[in-house]
Simulated assay, not measured.
Amino acid sequence: MQLGKGFCIKFYIFSSIGCLLLSKICAGLNKTDCSVVEMVKKVETCPSNKSKWLLESERKQCSTSNDECEKVYHCMTNAYKNETFDFCATNVILHGHYCGEFNEGGGIVQENYNNSCQNFNHPCPFLHNSSEEYKYPNCSETDKGTAKTPNTDIESRVTPYLAFVLILVIALPVGGACQFYKKRKEENKGLKTYEEVQQSDLDNKI
Rank of each mutant, 00 (worst) to 15 (best):
F7N: 10
A27H: 09
Y12T: 15
N66H: 06
R59A: 13
K10W: 15
T64D: 09
C8T: 12
Y12K: 12
T64S: 13
K71V: 12
F11S: 12
C19L: 15
K31T: 12
S63M: 06
Q61L: 10
D86T: 08
G96T: 09
K10A: 15
N103F: 00
I13K: 10
G107I: 07
A79Y: 13
G6P: 00
N112D: 09
T64L: 11
L29A: 03
G107T: 03
E68I: 14
H74C: 03
Q110D: 11
I9A: 12
Q61E: 14
C88F: 05
E70M: 14
T90P: 01
N78L: 11
T32A: 02
K24R: 13
D67G: 02
V92R: 11
G6S: 15
E101C: 00
C46T: 01
Q110G: 05
L94P: 01
I108Q: 05
R59S: 11
E83A: 15
T77E: 06
D67E: 14
G96K: 06
N82E: 08
G100I: 04
T84A: 11
I25G: 09
N103W: 01
C26Q: 14
E38M: 08
Q110C: 07
I13T: 11
E56D: 14
S57E: 07
E38T: 09
C75Q: 04
F87L: 14
M39T: 08
I9Q: 10
H97D: 05
V36Q: 08
E70A: 15
N91E: 10
N115R: 15
I108C: 00
T45N: 01
L94D: 03
C46E: 06
C117G: 10
S63Q: 04
L22A: 06
C62D: 04
D33V: 02
E44M: 01
C117I: 03
T45E: 04
C62T: 04
M76R: 00
C69Q: 06
F87R: 05
Y98G: 01
L20R: 08
H74E: 07
L94E: 04
W53E: 03
Y12S: 15
G96S: 03
D33W: 06
N66A: 05
S15R: 03
C75N: 00
